[in-house]
Design a protein around this nucleic acid. Structure first.
Lengths: 294, 294
DNA sequence: TCGTATGATAAATTTTATCTATGAATATTT
DNA sequence: AAATATTCATAGATAAAATTTATCATACGA
């Protein structure tokens, strides 16, 4: 058997009171119980800690030497428990957040400062990557939470939808549709659509829209960012689909680009949070969601 | 209930192996036992330490934060036990030794250096005082061991006789007995004997010799040390009784003093060790005695 | 789809800690 | 000096805790 914290507590108590009886009272146990524990401790250590006569209890030199160490262990244990309890306050410490590239630049500039203000104790460490890599890191415990489009195949995870992000059509100023206020999906049938690189979930979602609308991808071209797509459209190369979320950042006020919303039901993606189903921080993520979509 | 060292051990083990099964093996318990303990620990802390899925075990951020503290507690505990075990080596640390004034100057100059050489780890702290004060300090735990004459009334203590210290008679060079080689107790009948102050056990022992031999104390005179007595004898004021132990130091080779041993059975005092019956160091004192009387 | 991991759970069992009652020893009080 | 009260230790009974055995549900890989 091994020594126990309880034994150290009793040791410290008797050292303090120099009385088994008083120490037992202070520890809310009976005196024989405390005596037994100390006897055991002394047996385990191979050292007598106290010198008992019926009338007096004295610390032996060994006891004197060991007492400060015992006290240290006990206070370290208290600190351990205190720290643990303080960790129960939600959204403190570190949050490793994975975000996809078609969301990060448009959502985070607004939300991160708000997050910092509401939960100043929370340290957010960002990682921007494609959905499948984020999922991998999530499952390996390298990330705590993802901010992605929920349309992708995410596997067995917990999700929480935050917001619906509709697609819009971006066409060059001189495009045949440029005068329209809105479009339906069938309006872009036959169009050459510029899309993102492989791996971007936005590519897959836009591709799905193309399929249902009868548009087709411009062969041989893959943009690595929405910004590139916008540049291409402005250059008159073709049209593209953009998430409305990105417009404020990516599309300048006056430009050679015209933005056309879809008529309802508009195609859209869903931005949401993703975490391991086994994560103990689910409730924290709920709180965080409340802040992200007020 | 409170957290236990066992729980911290299991915590550290699972954190190391990232597997409940392997950790359980490493701790020589079954997996359910370990699981139960960790569940309890998490309940007590109010914090989940591990994130379990059937396939993987991950440290939560809280677990990550708490792990180093837990490890610290465990190593501190190991050190505590190690130190305790090392204290079982006898005659290390501090020994608070009380010695009477009629022994200290004559015995210690020889024995202390020997002690220091044999037990270099032992620190001796000396206190020189009268027997009854030494006994008081002993019973109060302010001293560990006494070196006194065992003839005194010592109360309920453990004793170990070291050596017999015979009395001798010291007479002025011109005294009627000065030509004798030896004396018997009756030889000093009627003599005026110089004695120590009240409280010195040697005074009581010498007085006892006087009573049986028919000598009497010189009224109104009390010496505070053997040296004073010797000076008085040298001055021809009277005779005295000295412990043979003191001769080498107190009586110069050539002097106005003649030392006369008693014929057997010579009166004597017994020098010995005294400790509380309850002291756990009794065996150490035995060892020490072996060194004092080779 | 089956076999083989994993961790969780339930019940039984063993171990450990505690309590009650009591004893021996020793100061203190009468 | 006897009686009293207080101390810590001990023994046996009891309560509490830890552990084991047996089993389940789940997920991964062949």
């Amino acid at each position: 058997m091994n020594i126990s914290l309880r034994q150290l507590e009793y040791f410290a108590a008797v050292a303090e009171w120099l009385s088994f009886r008083d120490a037992a009272d202070a520890c809310f146990v009976t005196q024989p119980g405390l005596s037994a524990q100390l006897k055991d401790l002394e047996r385990l250590l191979g050292v007598q800690l106290f010198e008992r006569s019926q009338r007096t209890v004295l610390l032996t030199p060994a006891g004197e030497t060991l007492l400060p160490l015992a006290r240290n262990i006990l206070t370290a244990t208290d600190e351990f428990v205190d720290l643990a309890r303080s960790l129960t306050q939600p959204l403190t410490g570190t949050l490793r957040l994975g975000v996809i590239p078609t969301v990060a630049p448009y959502l985070l500039p607004k939300t991160l400062p708000a997050l910092r203000q509401r939960y100043p104790q929370l340290q957010v460490r960002l990682h921007e990557d494609l959905t499948h890599r984020l999922l991998e890191m999530l499952s390996h415990g390298k990330l705590d939470l993802l901010l992605v489009a929920l349309e992708a195949d995410l596997g067995n995870v917990s999700t929480l939808a935050l917001t619906t992000d509709p697609f819009v059509v971006a066409v060059p100023a001189r495009h045949r549709l440029a005068k329209r206020k809105r479009v339906t999906e069938s309006d872009i049938a036959g169009e050459q659509v510029l899309l993102l690189d492989d791996g971007h979930c936005l590519r897959d979602q836009a591709l799905a829209v193309c399929h249902t609308s009868g548009a087709s991808e411009i062969g041989d071209f893959r943009a690595s960012s929405l910004n590139t797509l916008v540049q291409m459209v402005a250059g008159g190369i073709g049209i593209t689909l953009l998430p409305r979320l990105s417009l404020e950042v990516e599309v300048p006020q006056i430009s050679q680009i015209v933005i056309l919303p879809f008529r309802k039901p508009e195609p859209s993606r869903t931005i949401g949070l993703v975490w391991r189903t086994t994560s103990p921080r689910a409730h924290e993520f709920q709180l965080l969601a409340e802040l992200l979509v007020p």
